[in-house]
């Protein structure tokens, strides 16, 4: 009786978890499916597969003939993608350096303001996006700085430094400090020790932090929304605007392409992370 009850409970738990994963992925799957639906009138009713919406994204002709497509212009979309990439790459470079430096300072030096810095580095992550967004808006307008790519890059760095800091700090905390001591004892200069010992060991953390910064910067909507100018629309802001103007089948196609891109990045990132312990061992032996 008891074991039957236990088995029933386990079955229920399994069913519940299956429902959990369906809930997680069904909405995303719907977008992908509908992006291939050729029905131009009601995208919810399946009318055969086609690549029309993808063709129209890139300004190619499609089975709907010369009828004007819904996307304003594929140039705008590509421009938004370019803007997003420019911003994300610059942001990633700056916040990776600044965040890694800060993590090294807090982990390897003793100084008076240590406690203060620890709290300070957490604050940007805990601040609601919208508060940071409007604070930056007031600030940039106040100092007379035009809103554009530069203001967005600065805005993203303010909170992404914290993310990189956190990831690299976790890596530093799990590191064997005796390796650095041994290197110093054997007469290596601090710079040499850093280049040959510390950097290779924390590199997976640095790469992980950079990847995280890149993804969050590419995806940020709220802060960017407040501090972007007319000529600096990023991809998420552009898509947000499209959705608010009305649902069109091309959005499904854009969304599917973006989903594929982020799945690839995530898979690579998670794969790298799963390999981390192995690489560390090799590094310490080599």
């Amino acid at each position: 009786m008891n074991s039957l009850l236990a088995r029933l409970g386990r079955g229920l738990l399994g069913g519940y978890s299956l429902a959990f994963f369906i809930f997680l992925y069904l909405p995303i799957a719907l977008i992908v499916v509908y992006s291939f639906n050729s029905n131009p009138i009601n995208m919810m009713i399946w009318n055969g597969a086609s690549l029309d919406w993808y063709r129209s994204l890139f300004g190619l002709s499609n089975s709907l003939g010369s009828s004007k497509m819904y996307v304003e212009s594929s140039d705008q979309l590509l421009a938004a993608l370019r803007t997003s990439l420019t911003i994300a790459l610059s942001t990633t470079a700056i916040s990776t350096v600044a965040g890694t430096f800060m993590a090294l300072a807090l982990a390897r030096y003793r100084f008076r303001l240590q406690g203060f810095y620890r709290v300070l580095m957490f604050m940007p992550m805990l601040m609601p996006d919208i508060v940071l967004g409007i604070a930056l808006l007031i600030f940039f307008v106040g100092i007379g700085m035009p809103l554009g790519k530069a203001s967005i890059i600065i805005g993203h760095c303010t909170f992404l430094i914290s993310y990189v800091f956190l990831v690299v700090s976790a890596r530093l905390a799990g590191m064997d400090t005796r390796l650095e001591e041994a290197s110093a004892d054997l007469g290596a200069s601090p710079m040499h020790t850093f280049r040959r010992i510390t950097l290779p060991l924390i590199l997976p953390g640095v790469i992980g932090g950079a990847l995280l910064a890149f993804i969050i910067s590419m995806d940020d909507l709220v802060i960017t929304y407040f501090i972007s100018g007319v000529d600096s629309t990023t991809l998420p802001v552009y898509i947000y605007g499209m959705i608010r103007r009305g649902i069109k089948p091309e959005i499904n196609a854009i969304a599917t392409l973006l989903l594929i891109a982020s799945f690839i990045i995530a898979a690579v990132g998670l794969y790298l992370r799963s390999r981390q312990p192995a690489t560390t061992k090799e590094d310490t032996h080599g």
């Binding site: 909405p27 909507l221 898509i239 982020s262 995530a266």
Partner: peptide, 23 residues
Amino acid sequence: CMFLITLPFFTSLIIRLYAWVLI
């Protein structure tokens, strides 16, 4: 499973919300 749960975190927020607008 952990991979499946982490994945949405890496995918665009606006697109995950758009899915619910569609639904």
